[in-house]
Each structure stands twice: as C-alpha cells, then as structure tokens.
C-alpha cells in the first residue's frame, strides 16, 4: 500500500499553522550559558556525591535542567551527570530520596528516566537501575508524574 502520503508535510500549506515553539515558553538562557551551567553543575554534583549527599546532588542537577532546541550538548551532559548519581545510589535509599524531592523536581527526574530508557546502552545507562528508580518515583509521585513527563513539551 502506498504510505508515502503520510510523509507529506501538510503544515506547509496551512497559513495559520501552530508551531512547536508556540507551545511552551523558551528557555531565557543563551545556549552557551546553558552548557556552561551544565558543566558547573556536573562539578558541583561530583563534590556532593563525594560527601554522600545524593538528594542534594539530584536537586542541583534537576533544577533549571536544559530544554528546547540547540542545547543537545548540555542535555547529554546533564543526562550523564544524572545517570552517575542514579548509579551510585543504594537501592534501599532511593525511596527516601525521591520522597524528599519537590514536585517539580520529581517531574523532571521522571523525564530523565524516560529519556534514559529511550537510549539503552548509551554511556552508563542501565535499564535495571532506571526501572528501580521509576518504581520508587511512581510510588512517591503517582501516575500523575508520568502523565506530566509525557505531556510536557519542554523536552529534556
């Protein structure tokens, strides 16, 4: 069956098309600023991890997480930093940590868990670790948190 018609960009014929960029507020920061922020956070997180402050490290990396176009490098660095935190947490501590996070931070963490699961084998991403966090996070923040990770157009 002919399916090529599905690839036609019909929006180009619509004068009043709704653009992706109209659906969310853009990040006010400059892309260069975003990457330097991400690098700085990666360093701060290493210090926090050395002191064993997992919840603190998570809050730092998840706050003002990069989103939107043109910041791929910062996104990948943030994911890498986050994965390093997730991998170095004891399974018994996860539940307490996710409960201590703010609702906004929980939502952002869920977005990264799904991003990680979509990139198996990338860097240190481990499916079983992500699923462990996902289970505990869903217990703490409910299905609402998953729904928000799906609806939010501010992709991390």
């Amino acid at each position: 069956m002919e399916v090529n018609f599905r690839k036609i960009d019909i929006d180009q014929y619509d004068e009043d098309v709704l653009l992706e960029s109209e659906l969310y507020e853009p990040d006010p920061r400059d892309p260069a600023q975003v990457i330097s922020d991400a690098k700085q956070k990666a360093a701060t997180v290493r210090t926090s991890l050395a002191q064993g402050d997992i919840a603190g490290a998570l809050s730092i990396v998840l706050e003002d997480a990069p989103y939107g176009p043109n910041v791929e490098e910062a996104k990948n660095l943030t994911l890498q930093t986050l994965v390093s935190i997730l991998n170095s947490t004891k399974a018994t501590e996860i539940s307490g940590i996710v409960k201590s996070l703010s609702p906004d931070t929980q939502d952002t963490l869920m977005k990264y868990l799904y991003k990680g699961m979509a990139m198996p084998g990338w860097g240190d991403v481990s499916g079983s670790v992500l699923l462990g966090w996902h289970e505990k996070l869903t217990e703490a923040a409910g299905t609402g948190c998953i729904v928000r990770a799906m609806t939010d157009r501010r992709l991390v």
Binding site: P103, G142, T143, G144
Partner: peptide
C-alpha cells in the same frame, strides 16, 4: 486563578488527569 490578586495556584495530582 484570581485575576484580582493576581495569583494562580496549581495543584499537581499524583493521579490521572
């Protein structure tokens, strides 16, 4: 939303929409 305030309060649910 209270436009007079102006203030807006959001509650994030743990359940479905």
């Amino acid at each position: 939303v209270y436009p007079g305030g102006p203030a807006a309060f959001t509650i994030k649910l743990t359940s479905l929409p």
